[in-house]
Design a protein around this nucleic acid. Sequence first.
RNA 1: GCCCUCGUAGCUCAGUUGGAUAGAGCAACGGCCUUCUAAGCCGUAGGUCAGGCGUUCGAAUCGCCUCGAGGGUACCA
Length: 539
Amino acid sequence: MSVELILKEKIKKAFAKLGIEIDSEAIVIECSKDKSHGDYATNAALKFSSLLKKNPRESASLIVEQIETSGLDKIEIAGPGFINFFVKKDSLVSVISKIINDGIAYGNGENKNNRINVEFVSANPTGDLHLGHARNAAIGDSLARILKKAGNDVTREYYLNDAGNQIDNLALSIEARYQELFGRDVTIGDNMYHGADIIEIAKHIKKLHGDKFLDNKNALKFFKTFGMDEELKKINKDLELFRVKFDVYSYETKVRANDAVLKEIDFLKNHTYKDGDAIVLRTTDFVDDKDRVIVKSNGEYTYFLPDIVYHVNKLSRGFDSLIDVLGADHHGYINRMKSALMMHGYKEDVLDIELIQMVRIFQNGEEVKLSKRTGNTITLRELCEEVGVDAVRYFFVARSASAHLDFNIDLAREQSNSNPVYYAQYAYARLTSVLEQAKDIPLDQSGSLLKESAEMDLVKVLVDYPNVIQDAANKKEPAIITNYIQKLATSVHSFYTACRIIDKDNITLTSNRLALSEAARIVMNNALDLIGVNAPNKM
RNA sequence: GCCCUCGUAGCUCAGUUGGAUAGAGCAACGGCCUUCUAAGCCGUAGGUCAGGCGUUCGAAUCGCCUCGAGGGUACCA
């Protein structure tokens, strides 16, 4: 059990002795920022003083009298009524042997028996993944890793809208380029795809099939599936480069098979009304602020309807909850989809939509304006080639998803200390190097000789790791992990500078410090992996 | 108009679910390499937490108003 949990239990029991039951979730334990405030502190006396009918300081002393003191050096009451805990060194340093024994499993949450489906990227296979997809991929994948680490059963899913207009336009674009290869006059319309990738696909088809599809009734159908496969192959190659892998690909055409959409309309009939020839879903009965059209006057479906079918499909596969990672422009989508799922009897929070704010690119101190129309775009591949996968993944996750991200290309490209990725990777490389040089010296996991403040600070950061994972998972916020990585790197560098690790004249101390180094190395590797960043042995 | 996200050091951002003297990194300044990687460490300086009112023992955090940035408000996807 972690130190924090032990303290929570102690506080809970102290309250119980005073005749008050409180939930241990409600007890807040903080790591003290100031050493004179002990190792950990709680505001429980302040928070619950009204229950004790005493002022905060009096409450604090009542509680302190009841706290069982094993594992503690002393307890102090300070300020308006904080209770400060000075923890015995042994209870802190025991984390070293725990980390070394658990290895990569350190920080794993208990199995929650909770199946979560995380859907992200889901870009239409009509061209390269661009900047927005890159942030989506970085955050979605990191989130999946974190949720898994926290003890959930996670499935990564990619949804392909292969029934929509985009795919038709893709087929038309390929057809035009294909005919062009045979010298025909073609015009590429505004809603068609102008990219060079389309020309490549057309050439590929010509090479494989010659003029077979020049005047062929089935040409468009073929261009559609062939083009989509080609584009998806490229997307997957880019994603692989970006260290993102999906467990499941869902095709809209398959989701819609067996009249699933018609059945859905029938299922929803008690929640719909007609507006002219259109069918409108009464989402305002639930959590939406406006009713939504699901079938247009011309009989076509809006995208919303098959999307409902898709979400119901996901839930029918046995997931306890769904997460969609979407761009911030999908804001209006959240409540209408939740409403639709509530019509199916699901709770509002069965679906969680993580909105990702826009990325702005800065170069030479100026914003780079991107536009698909003018062809001025940046693809995920270009970005990775330009600044490296580690830097891109780190930067795209390091800011809270709900915050706009200004991505400074010059900074990310810079292989210098102004780049936070290198700061963390360097800490890892230093530890690895020391451990390699001292590989003949056995580790002493007892921590009995550790006493320097730099050593104990590092130990406390390591103790904190499992809590950080739970926190990041609960808040669905990968940026919490990067914040932790920075803190850990700082502690490692301070320790490294303040304490000489290998000392041939003091092998016992060396063994202690090597064990601490190994523990820190394991946790750093572990944390970097959660955001998909490599931990290099050398830099 | 209405809804959402946001506004914290010169820049980019944290801030542990209302707590003690608001913190990092970069940029600036001053120190530290005969020994494990100086891509590092230690220190100095830098703040009207956009502004105002309120809630209470206590507010960057909660509520209301104002100002400012971005997004949404489609029978587009």
